[in-house]
Design a protein around this nucleic acid. Structure first.
Lengths: 337, 337
DNA sequence: TTGTATGCGTTATCAT
DNA sequence: ATGATAACGCATACAA
């Protein structure tokens, strides 16, 4: 392993000078020696030892994407959203000289330990609620934190990149209303107050209200966040004849409901119109293809990473951005009823 | 930050003793002081500084999952296989005291630098070919390497976790043959010699041969690895009437082909039977649901991680395991023609 | 403009 | 059984 001392020896300068060259402190080194040192660095193939840097400076250049697995929602790294986020994040961090660590933690202590272990510079987290055990801890961590899809009344030091969930739900429900539906089932995972599904429910209700349609609680269904569980909802809906359309707050739920409806001997969009949320890759592969509210997960990750970098470099403070979503019309909603 | 010196002071012992306690060198410390030191460690909330450890020892406890992006296949972290792998890997590594870094590299130099930067202990890589620029580099890296889905004539220091691709393809083709099909289209991404698709093609041919069916090269289609591109194949197939079944070497291709077939005014499985490979989550959500050859990606990741850990701890040498796959019959193949 | 000396937190060597 | 000391590679305060 080549160290700055090796370089110093070869260039007949002190290691301080080499360090200054490496760190671009051009005022402290003459152009001549700078050039010489640089060429020797290239020639000898010097690669900085990040551990040594992390030890002496107080920054490690490590950013962590942490998966806080609560008992309920296990948003693991193979979640399609998380993984797309991860992709964008790794890319942006790398381009800015940072490194990405992935880590699951089950409680605040584990998180704290991990952060100290590597002197992590910043962290990404998904779906944090104010009620989470982690919340207080996060508020007191004096590092850049970027959340995604979190609704907090006080973000404090934390940035957040979320969606216009409320508006997105209105988009969905309005689309159904526009096509003549008034008996609309609302399907979602179990609703946590102050979570995205809660916001989507509120948007749904708002759209109904604006259209003069009374929200009927018996048209509200929740299931585990899986297509299989949602299948039961679909079969239940197919067994009733007072419902004509469905708004599912996730494509996965929508797909399950669709399957359940088919099990019940009914068809989409003839018997039921259905609209999802997210626009996962396979929505267009379904048959009928799924009309849905699209979120740009790629952009979300990009933005989250950009935010992280600018916070790390002290170029901006934490902020909360809510990305727009838009309707993608496909075949699962029957038009002009 | 609490250091071992702080602990040493509080316990009135030397930092060496604290270090010995921490590292379980029980022969070098009396049970009494061991207990005392441990309680103080717990009390004061000591957390080891991994950077310092990495600096002085020659191990960092960091394992990297690297994404080598060639111009052709960009197997990014949001690929469903990679992300599931990532999940299993992170879990196993964590349970064994290791940390996971994610990193994309575009060439061998970048990889080398990265490995040196953090003194990475081991690395995971996907889809390495002997022709890759990276290959020679990898062969000369003296660290545990675990590949997935790579067919190499000489694995050297590297372990590999792959699939029984050949057998899987036979499974698929035999299933179609059994149901009376002899004019079977073979659809895949561009075939790299010595890659998984090559193996699957060979398995396909072998099955045909065994059944006494001649392989017809005009029934072989390739497209980019996307559903959209595969759609063109589907439309082309729908325009011909000499084909009755399709074996696609990936579910994604199969889905695209199915869509193309529908575009061409034909239906699955009435006009064409189709079988995929992988069994991605959404296969069962399709309509008709996709018959496919299932690989257990979860298990693959698990195994890869176990292999990595045992190599890191010198408990086993590199080995090449090929996981079995099995047929999942759903609705896209018409039975007993 | 350049160099010397010190310390970051830890492990390892060698005493005691 | 325990401790003093050096060393890992680097950045920085301070000298020159």
């Amino acid at each position: 392993m080549i160290t700055i001392d090796d370089i110093a020896r070869a260039a007949k300068v002190s290691s301080t000078t080499v360090s200054n060259v490496i760190n671009g402190r051009s005022s402290r080194v003459s152009p001549a020696t700078k050039a010489r040192v640089n060429s020797i660095i290239a020639e000898m193939g010097y690669v900085p030892n990040m551990s040594a840097r992390a030890l002496v400076s107080q920054s490690s250049k490590v950013v962590a994407l942490v998966n806080y697995f609560r008992t309920t929602t296990n948003a693991a790294f193979d979640d399609p959203f998380i993984s797309r986020l991860t992709n964008a994040v790794e890319c942006t961090l790398r381009e800015n000289g940072y490194y990405l660590m992935l880590r699951s933690v089950s409680d605040a202590d584990e998180l704290q330990s991990f952060l100290q272990n590597w002197n992590v510079d910043g962290l990404f987290l998904t779906g944090v609620y104010e009620g989470d055990e982690l919340y207080t801890t996060l508020r007191n961590i004096n590092k850049p934190i970027v959340l995604t899809d979190s609704y907090l009344s006080d973000y404090g030091n934390m940035a957040n990149v979320g969606l216009q969930d409320f508006e997105g739900a209105m988009l969905a429900t309005n689309h159904l209303l526009k096509n003549g539906h008034t008996r609309i089932a609302f399907c979602s995972p179990p609703i946590k107050s102050g979570g995205v599904d809660d916001m989507r429910l509120k948007g749904h209700c708002e759209a109904l209200k604006t259209a003069g349609v009374t929200f009927d609680p018996t048209l509200s269904f929740t299931s585990d966040f899986s297509a299989k569980a949602a299948g039961r909802i679909g079969r239940a809906i197919a067994a009733r004849n007072d419902i004509t359309a469905i708004f599912a707050t996730a494509d996965l739920i929508a797909a399950g409901v669709m399957a359940g409806i088919r099990d019940g001997g009914k068809t989409v969009p003839n018997d039921y119109s259905i609209i999802g949320f997210d626009d996962l890759d396979w929505c267009r592969l379904m048959h009928p293809s799924l009309t849905t509210v699209r979120q740009n997960t790629q952009l979300k990750g990009q933005l989250a990473a950009d935010l992280m970098v600018s916070m790390l470099e002290n170029e901006s403070a934490a902020q909360n951005v809510m990305l727009p979503v838009h309707l993608v019309e496909r075949e699962s909603v029957r038009t002009n009823l």
